[in-house]
């Protein structure tokens, strides 16, 4: 095979020679010279400023009932807060822990049950014919409408945790199954044909084509799933929980501890964002091969 030369490898090794520090500095400089970070900072700052002006500075009616950033910040950073929740109190972290722990359990069960179900539904028509209608009938019912039924299902059998986790599980489960199924359906027919040509048996097709092929969609589904699971969990906690960030929000409202409401809301935002980010990063690293659409 000498008539055709293979391209030399030299160009790729040259790129690796540029030190990664120089590259990072270059990127940093690029980023700093763009308007985007400054505008972004301005956007967030104006939001906080507006909040401050409306609630605490100008005492605009209706707004003045809400806690302002100063009050929230003082409470949040105080070693002995008036209402018992700040970065120094273990109670704060306990609530965070409980919410996270519940979401993780819901996420675990939803993935373990949802991904295989979605894979089979996407792969085998028969399976889908039996499973899909049931799912499509149950899915339009908002997860939170299940609250009473969830309580009844687990009454006397499991702890009070079970209904709350079940609700988060339901939300995540539907998102996972649907996206996984779509993922399998999105796999180009040609890969199945190639696999058949190469002599694959069904289990090969499942593990070597169906599963890896659906992986991008599975991760999208997990990301969405975590989001809706988190959303449902907070609502469930507000309605019927003890401990947890959702519970904290409702409880502090009932007890008129308004700054704590804001603290809890913002914490929810940060933690929720963190979850999605982690899944996104894990997904990206597992799927290096999907950077560019292959052809």
């Amino acid at each position: 095979m000498t008539a055709i030369e293979t391209p030399s490898q030299s160009r790729t090794t040259q790129a690796a020679d540029i030190s990664s520090l120089a590259l990072t500095l270059f990127r940093l400089r690029q980023w700093l010279t763009q308007p985007s970070p400054y505008l972004g900072f301005l956007g967030v700052a104006s939001l906080v400023l507006a909040w401050y002006l409306l609630t605490e500075f100008f005492n605009v009616p209706r707004f003045n009932k809400l806690p302002g950033p100063v009050a929230v910040w003082q409470e949040f950073t105080s070693p002995s807060p008036t209402f018992g929740i700040s970065i120094y109190t273990p109670a704060y972290y306990m609530h965070i822990f409980w919410s996270i722990w519940r979401v993780l359990q819901a996420f675990f069960w939803a993935t373990i049950l949802g991904v295989p179900l979605g894979l089979f539904m996407g792969w085998k028509r028969t399976f889908r014919d039996y499973a899909f209608p049931v799912l499509e009938i149950v899915r339009p019912i908002p997860v939170l409408a299940w609250v009473p039924v969830a309580i009844l299902i687990f009454a006397g059998i499991a702890s009070r945790e079970a209904p709350v986790i079940f609700l988060a599980f339901l939300a995540t489960f539907f998102a996972t199954v649907l996206n996984t199924m779509l993922g399998v359906e999105s796999i180009d027919e040609v890969y199945f044909r190639a696999a058949r040509c190469l002599g694959s048996k069904p289990r090969h097709v499942f593990f070597r084509v169906v599963l890896p092929g659906a992986l991008p969609y599975i991760f999208t589904g997990l990301q969405i799933g975590v989001g809706v699971g988190w959303f449902s969990l907070v609502a469930a906690e507000m309605i019927s929980g003890e401990y947890g960030l959702g519970f904290l929000i409702w409880d502090s409202y009932v007890l008129s501890q308004f700054p704590v409401i804001i603290i809890a809301m913002l914490t929810l935002g940060v933690v929720g964002y963190g979850f999605s980010a982690i899944i996104r990063i894990v997904g990206a690293s597992l799927m290096r091969w999907a950077d560019r659409s292959g052809a």
Binding site: F41, G246, Y273
Partner: peptide
């Protein structure tokens, strides 16, 4: 975009008391 991205992860129901 940044303010939206900060507010978005807060579940809508968490806004109920406020």
């Amino acid at each position: 975009f940044p303010p939206l991205e900060i507010l978005r992860p807060i579940p809508p129901l968490a806004w109920v008391p406020t």
